[in-house]
Simulated scan of single mutants.
Amino acid sequence: MTQPEYTPASLPATRSKTTLAAEDTTGRARRARTEPMAVRPLRDGRYAVETAGGTYVVDLDARTCTCPDAQLRDARCKHRRRVALEVTEGLVPPPDQRTAVCAVCGGRTFVPQASRAPALCAAHESDPGTLVRDRETGDRLIVVAATGERADRFETDEGRLVADYPSNAHYGGHEPVFRVVYLDALRREGDVRRYAFPASRLQRVADASDGPSPADSADVTDPTTA
């Protein structure tokens, strides 16, 4: 089934004020958790923090906040603390990243600020060396590299777009493409051909019902040198 294309417009533009568990804290640390605040990342890596008393701008890298507590007392205010907490808990992206949506499932993920490649969440990302299964044939493959290109823009060695292959008709043209090699090919002598597949066509073997045998796993050593 073709995966829908997700865009930044799919993400909420604002967040409601929320609180965090108080835990064993006091003073500013406790207020940072228990007072309702809405943290919104800005394009320049800073954060707008909306509270009942006003909206302030936090810069984690510069360790500053525009609130009176920080400006007049040079304190590590509750706003800075709250932003740091939300970054640590994965509620907002770190200063050098931005929020994006996974091209496969539409789930939220974080990517580098400058990245323009299709985004993938942790569940659908595949690092080099990952053992996967082709959903169309059941064959086992090893991921060699992420191309950073969409299936409807990336050309194979045959000069055809990945999205134009009939076997890829059920996968989204907006999905990122991965270079892969067949596991069986690594057992043979000679050059190993690399193929290009859209992300959701590849299923991690660890997620499949019949995972790799010990013999298969032993062959997954250094596919990038194959």
Rank of each mutant, 00 (worst) to 15 (best):
M1C: 08
M1I: 04
T2G: 10
T2Q: 10
Q3V: 04
Y6D: 00
Y6K: 05
P8Q: 04
S16W: 13
S16K: 12
T18W: 11
T19N: 12
L20A: 11
L20W: 12
L20C: 06
A22Q: 13
T26M: 14
G27A: 01
A29Q: 13
A32E: 01
R33G: 06
T34P: 04
P36A: 11
P36R: 10
V39H: 12
V39Y: 12
R40E: 13
P41C: 12
G45Y: 11
R46S: 09
R46K: 14
A48L: 13
A48M: 08
V49A: 06
A52G: 11
G54S: 13
Y56K: 11
D59S: 14
D59M: 10
T64F: 09
C67K: 05
D69S: 15
A70I: 05
D74S: 13
A75S: 09
K78V: 02
K78W: 08
H79I: 00
R80H: 07
R82D: 02
A84W: 03
L85E: 14
L85I: 08
E86P: 06
E86V: 09
E86F: 14
T88I: 12
T88S: 15
T88Y: 15
E89C: 13
L91K: 15
L91E: 08
V92H: 07
Q97M: 15
R98Q: 02
R98G: 00
T99H: 13
A100E: 03
A103Q: 06
G107F: 11
R108V: 04
R108F: 04
R116L: 08
P118A: 00
A122K: 13
A123I: 00
A123L: 04
A123N: 08
H124F: 09
S126K: 14
D127E: 12
P128R: 10
T130D: 05
T130M: 03
L131E: 00
V132M: 07
D134R: 02
E136Y: 11
T137E: 00
G138Q: 00
R140D: 00
L141S: 06
L141F: 12
I142V: 15
V144F: 09
A145G: 05
G148V: 02
G148C: 01
F154K: 15
T156H: 07
L161R: 15
V162H: 07
V162E: 02
Y165I: 04
P166S: 07
P166L: 01
H170S: 12
H170D: 07
H174F: 04
E175Q: 13
P176M: 06
V177S: 05
V177R: 07
V181I: 09
A185L: 07
A185D: 14
E189Y: 15
E189L: 15
G190M: 07
D191Y: 13
A196M: 03
F197Q: 01
F197N: 02
A199C: 06
Q203E: 15
V205R: 03
V205D: 02
V205Q: 01
A208C: 07
S209L: 08
S209D: 06
D210A: 09
P212H: 08
P212Y: 08
P212T: 00
S213V: 07
P214Q: 08
D216Y: 01
T221V: 14
P223L: 03
T224E: 10
T225S: 13
A226F: 10
